[in-house]
Structure formats: structure tokens, C-alpha cells
């Protein structure tokens, strides 16, 4: 698997002060693979996700995405600002609270990465941005400001914004946790569509039924370690560890995805 893996994490460690959040985590994501990270809050899953694009800089271990790899810990130099920026441009990230730029229209939000980071000509960036907005079903919202959109629409714009950088991998940090229940489906549908197109993705989620449906691998974390890992359906339907069983007992694990509301 490691030959074809798109993301390779080895012995990753991270502490915030005296709080050890990640205790030697290793993780592989195959090209085109979808990995779901689940676990109780404080388990380190969001920190792990943020270490993949180095939004959080690890204390030890190594991170490789595609051909770019970084080692951390004793004797290794922290990557510089420019190196980090170039690296992050190849990974897309979607946040729990959308983090859209409120002073820009939807279209400008999606154009921002291509124009500022990739130095793309405005006209080309606009064409690309409109295509991405169309892809998430929001072509007609191009000239509106984020404040006028619903939560589900905001998150779809955020996905379009990340896709406009044409990233190799997409990282989702609890992308539906801040949404009203009736808006969750429209965002999950977009993520599912990306999965079916072969996008490599790591998804931190509490939507167990969704993870079962979309992810091919599932990782259950608790207290900074990987407790259980395996094919998503197998882990969810037949967890081996007591801690996994206890956590999963809080969720409906199967059944249909939440219905997608008609795209407005």
C-alpha cells in the first residue's frame, strides 16, 4: 500500500504545552482513497488532520503528501514560511465553521486562491471559479456575499474555494458539525460526489452512516492514539475494540444518508 499511498504519516507526535494530543500516529491514504477519522472530542483527530497540511506543525515524526515530505523533531529544521505555503497550496481544507471571507462575494472567495497564490489571470480564475461553483450547485450565487447564504450553501462555497486550487488531496474538518440537520445532506452529497471522482480525502466526521457509505477506511482515535483501523464497513458493523464499540453505540450506524434538500 505504501508504494501507491498519496498520504503517508509516520510516528507523528504533537503536544500543546503538557497536553500530548498525538502519540506516535501513523497513517496511510491510498491514491483516490477516502479515510474517515472518528472519535470522541479531544481524541486528536482534528489535530491530526491539521498536521497533514501543516496548519499545525508536529513535534516529531514525518508527513508526506504526494512527492513532498517533511520530517520533524530533533535535528530537523522547521520548514520556512514559503515552503509551507507552497505545500499547503496542494492540499484543500474545509473547516467546521466555513471560514469564508466575508468581505468578498462568493465568486471572489473561490477566485482568491488561484489569483493570489497561483498568480492566475483574473479571467481564467473567474472561469475556473464559476465552474467550481457550478459543480457544488451554486452557480447562481456567484455575486452574493457569504452573509446572505445558508450554512449548507456556505460550506459548499468553501468546498468550491478549496477545489479551485486543484488540490491533490482534500481534508474535511467536521464539515457538517456546525450545520442545521436539514442542511447536512447537501454538503455530504458534494463530498460523496468528490469521492466518486477519485479525490483522495481525509474526513473528520461525526456522521457515522456517511463514513460507512463513503469512506473505504476508517480510523477510530481516542486520547491521541489509533485504537482501531480497518475497512470502514467492517469497523462500523463489527468493531473489535471495546472503546470503539462504546463510542459507536451512540450513533445510528446504517441507513440512508440524510436527504439532500433540493439545491436552491
Amino acid at each position: 500500500m505504501s508504494e501507491t499511498s498519496k498520504i503517508e504519516i509516520r510516528a507523528l507526535r504533537k503536544s500543546f504545552g503538557s497536553n500530548e494530543v498525538l502519540k506516535s500516529i501513523s497513517l496511510d491514504v491510498a491514491k483516490g482513497g477516502v479515510v474517515a477519522l472518528i472519535g470522541p472530542s479531544g481524541s486528536g483527530k482534528s489535530t491530526l488532520l491539521r498536521c497533514i497540511n501543516l496548519l499545525v506543525v508536529p513535534d516529531g515524526g514525518s508527513v508526506r503528501v504526494g512527492d513532498t515530505s517533511f520530517a520533524f523533531g530533533d535535528g530537523s529544521k522547521l520548514p520556512g514560511v514559503k515552503t509551507l505555503a507552497r505545500f499547503r497550496a496542494t492540499t484543500g481544507m474545509v473547516f467546521q465553521h466555513f471560514n469564508l471571507f466575508p468581505h468578498m462575494t462568493t465568486l471572489q472567495n473561490v477566485m482568491e486562491g488561484p489569483v493570489t497564490v497561483r498568480r492566475m489571470a483574473k479571467a481564467d480564475a473567474e472561469k475556473l471559479a464559476r465552474a467550481q461553483l457550478a459543480k457544488v450547485g451554486l452557480a447562481e450565487k456567484a455575486d452574493q456575499y457569504p452573509a446572505t447564504l445558508s450554512g449548507g450553501q456556505k460550506q459548499r462555497v468553501a468546498i468550491a474555494r478549496a477545489l479551485a486550487m486543484e488540490p491533490d488531496v482534500m481534508l474535511f474538518d467536521e464539515a457538517t458539525s456546525a450545520l442545521d440537520p436539514e442542511l447536512v445532506g447537501e454538503v455530504l452529497n458534494v463530498i460523496q460526489q468528490l469521492a466518486s471522482e477519485g479525490m483522495t480525502m481525509v474526513i473528520v466526521t461525526h456522521e457515522i452512516a456517511f463514513a460507512r457509505e463513503v469512506a473505504d477506511r476508517l480510523i477510530f482515535m481516542r486520547d491521541g492514539i489509533v485504537v482501531e483501523e480497518g475497512p470502514a464497513r467492517q469497523v462500523i458493523d463489527n468493531p473489535q475494540e471495546a472503546a470503539t464499540r462504546a463510542f459507536l453505540s451512540h450513533f445510528h450506524r446504517t441507513g440512508a444518508l440524510p436527504p439532500a434538500n433540493a439545491v436552491s
Binding site: N53, L55, V81, K82, L84, A85, R86, F87, R88, A89, T90, T91, G92, M93, F95, H97, N99, L100, F101, P102, H103, E112, G113, T116, V117, R118, A158, R161, A162, M165
Partner: peptide, 30 residues
């Protein structure tokens, strides 16, 4: 300005200077 704004800039591949100029300052100046 919410830390998520500069994080979103960083996640797109902006340097700290770019995200200050393009994302944080336009909102902060207001």
C-alpha cells in the same frame, strides 16, 4: 479578526503576508 480567517488563507497556500494583506487587513480596517 477571527483566527479562522487567516487559517483559511494559509490553507489555500497564502504566506502570512498575503493573508494579512488580502484577508485580515481589509476586514480589520473597517
Amino acid at each position: 479578526i477571527d483566527k479562522g480567517q487567516s487559517e483559511a488563507g494559509a490553507a489555500l497556500g497564502m504566506t502570512p503576508g498575503q493573508s494579512m494583506r488580502r484577508i485580515v487587513l481589509p476586514q480589520a480596517i473597517k
